[in-house]
């Protein structure tokens, strides 16, 4: 009896605690999202009245080659960026943990700084680094690797991968921060056993730290996948979707459909498809990292 009462009281408090956040999220995120979904079944040019057209927009998304291919590009970009961001961020976090406090602070600052710099400057910089006669190609020829020189951002086959790598690099600071925060909350006592048994650092990482920070990894993986599907600024700043439309990703196509072609219904449909596609990948990622979570 008392147990139930306690549970009931907890639940009530819980709802109360969630209420303010829920209100803000519903009004400013969920309502616009639902509006988009509703619009995806209609036709609208931004000014006239809204007409219901059923699934015509979705059919057009899947039948227009130029639209469908942007989804494929978004997937490639997301996978590349996520891999780079996660691997690099985790690497940094684990390596940093070996160093002294002061050094850790310094390196944390350095590795997080790309995330804080506005896209305008980073875009300018990378355009000149990746230019056909830019820094990267110059470096390659210095190292005698001239055969590897490319027009990094102009080659349609290459540009997307390059963009993914740049995006991953920019976002790895966030992964690093979250992993570091997670690692810091692991108590000392855990390592004593391992040390007594003579395990080296990397074994400790593999057996103790990685499994224990798995929830954080799962979380960050989901967030990174999600945000790399939605990225617009980086692609736009570096290639504007070019050459031509070869690096047009789904978000850019959504903008084009809406603001250039005045087809907001199709844009909303593409947006909804993108959300479903991204959800699929996020859930897949979470499934890959499923398992027990530990308390310590």
């Amino acid at each position: 009896m008392k147990q139930k009462k306690v549970q009931g009281y907890q639940r009530l408090t819980g709802y109360l605690f969630m209420a303010p956040a829920a209100v803000m999220i519903i009004v400013f995120m969920i309502v616009p999202l639902l509006w988009n979904v509703a619009l995806s079944f209609c036709s609208w040019n931004g000014n006239s009245s809204v007409e219901f057209v059923g699934i015509t927009n979705y059919l057009s998304v899947f039948s227009e080659a130029t639209t469908l291919v942007t989804l494929k590009r978004s997937v490639i970009l997301a996978l590349t960026a996520t891999s780079v961001s996660m691997l690099l961020g985790m690497l940094y976090a684990f390596l940093l943990y070996r160093l002294r406090k002061k050094e850790q602070s310094f390196f944390r600052f350095v590795f997080f700084s790309p995330a804080m710099l506005p896209m305008t400057v980073t875009g300018l910089l990378f355009v000149f680094v990746l230019s056909s006669n830019g820094l990267l190609n110059a470096l390659l020829s210095l190292l005698g690797l001239e055969s590897l020189q490319h027009a990094w951002l102009a080659d349609p086959n290459l540009a997307l991968w390059v963009l993914g790598i740049v995006q991953g690099w920019k976002g790895c600071g966030v992964t690093m921060m979250l992993c570091t925060t997670a690692i810091l909350s692991l108590p000392d006592s855990l390592y004593e056993c391992a040390r007594l048994e003579g395990a080296n650092y990397w074994q400790q990482v593999r057996i103790i730290m990685l499994p224990l920070i798995k929830p954080t990894l799962k979380l960050q993986l989901s967030m990174t996948v999600m945000s790399s599907f939605k990225s617009y600024d980086i692609v736009y700043a570096m290639t504007k979707g070019g050459p031509g439309e070869f690096t047009y990703t789904a978000p850019m196509k959504i903008i084009q459909l809406g603001f250039t072609f005045n087809e907001y219904g199709t844009a909303a449909a593409l947006g909804t498809v993108l959300v479903l596609l991204a959800s699929f990948f996020v859930i897949a990622a979470r499934f890959a990292l499923r398992g027990e979570t530990y308390e310590y």
Partner: peptide, 16 residues
């Protein structure tokens, strides 16, 4: 200018 990279040339690259 920029040969294979000509189609991706930015205003800044051309000015430079």
């Amino acid at each position: 200018y920029l040969d294979e990279g000509a189609l991706a040339a930015t205003t800044d690259e051309i000015t430079s």
